[in-house]
Design a protein around this nucleic acid. Structure first.
Lengths: 211, 211
DNA sequence: ATTATCTATAGATCTATAGATAATGC
DNA sequence: ATTATCTATAGATCTATAGATAATGC
């Protein structure tokens, strides 16, 4: 099981600051976050913030690195089972991805907006993507090609398939407040909503793959 | 033809500030935007910023209102053609939506992150969504129900269909820098990318609707 | 007369540090 | 001795305003 509870350390003050900072940064972004608010939320004096982490940027970098490794683990470790059918593979990808986002609902918005508004800080993230995504996409493409030749599915582009899956899985979380305004109470029962989208998105993708 | 060129006014200094502010707010958000940067980008002294718009929040509100009316026009004015087939209706919705986003590529990220990080300023936007979305969804649902009864498509939930369409259309724009890192040069030829996603998303949705 | 612009600066807000003091672990 | 904490304040950054001056349109 992966760590979805955030960052931990041995020191309780340090811990409290880290937890408060994660919340502040994830919900407000780097520019909107305030070190005074973080210290206050952590229940420590503001000087403690600087004592443990020196600067706002350093603490932000530490948290974004933690999130990057979390993402890497969730996205690029699909425990490739050579024997799994294309249908099983797709289902596993969708379910894991959606479970991961459900456990980290603020992460997509945080990553997309920080990567966009910032260049230096997000280079680490983008270089990780550049490194790992092509491998994952090639593996999936081979699997699709083999299944297509055996007549089990259509010959689709793995890159478009992953773009479809991530779009369908992630967008609801990024736009949650707007969806709730458009469709009253849609995400009110969160568990139910996730379960529904899992089925729905799997169905959508499988129809696309069907010969 | 709708106005996708931003806000205009009769005064050139006011215009320059508005244009610069739109760029600054759309790319950096309210918290990240600097009134000094806006004035500099507009080529006027900082005092002019306050002379024309008094405060940062007032100018932000003006720009977000402009964007809301733009969205309303694009999303809730699908020129309901009673005689159009379900296929034609879906195609029109997807193409218009995608064209609108392509003309305003920063808008989805801006709206989703500002709506989330802010309560007061985005209430106007959410109340507009609450007002117009159900009407649009009901109209579409009736159309789907009629088509389904005639055997032209499956009996799907209009709300899920619109969620799928918006997810597939919007996500690429929100995650563009990440997609380009994962799939080198994917959005390099922007026109081509839009045309491809138009076809792809229409195909995905129609397969879902097929009996 | 009114509108537009400038320089200079006040005021507010945040980040970061200095320096003293208390707690902790050899 | 080292680590952790506090108070007080410096320093940096941004927003906003005051007050003078130039341009514009009756």
């Amino acid at each position: 099981m992966m760590n979805t509870e955030g960052i931990t350390s041995s020191n309780s003050t340090e811990n409290a600051i880290l937890a408060a900072a994660e919340r502040e940064f994830l919900t407000k972004g780097f520019a909107g976050a305030r070190t005074t608010s973080i210290a206050e939320a952590a229940g420590v004096t503001h000087a403690m913030f600087h004592y443990y982490f020196r600067t706002k940027a350093k603490l932000f970098d530490r948290i974004i690195e933690e999130k990057i490794s979390l993402l890497k683990e969730a996205l690029f470790n699909p425990v490739e089972n050579e024997n799994a059918s294309i249908e099983e593979t797709i289902q596993t990808i969708i379910e894991r991805h959606l479970d991961f986002i459900a456990a980290n609902p603020d992460l997509p918005r945080f990553i997309t907006s920080e990567v966009y508004s910032n260049t230096e800080r997000s280079d680490v993230f983008l270089s990780q993507i550049t490194k790992y995504a092509p491998i994952m996409l090639n593996n999936l493409q081979s699997k699709i090609d083999r299944a297509a030749e055996a007549g089990h599915c259509r010959h689709v582009d793995a890159r478009m398939l992953i773009l479809d899956i991530t779009s369908l899985n992630i967008f609801s979380f990024i736009a949650a407040p707007i969806l709730n305004a458009a469709i009253s109470g849609l995400t009110a029962d969160f568990e139910k909503f996730i379960a529904m989208r899992k089925k729905e998105n799997f169905d959508t993708i499988m129809r696309k793959l069907k010969p």
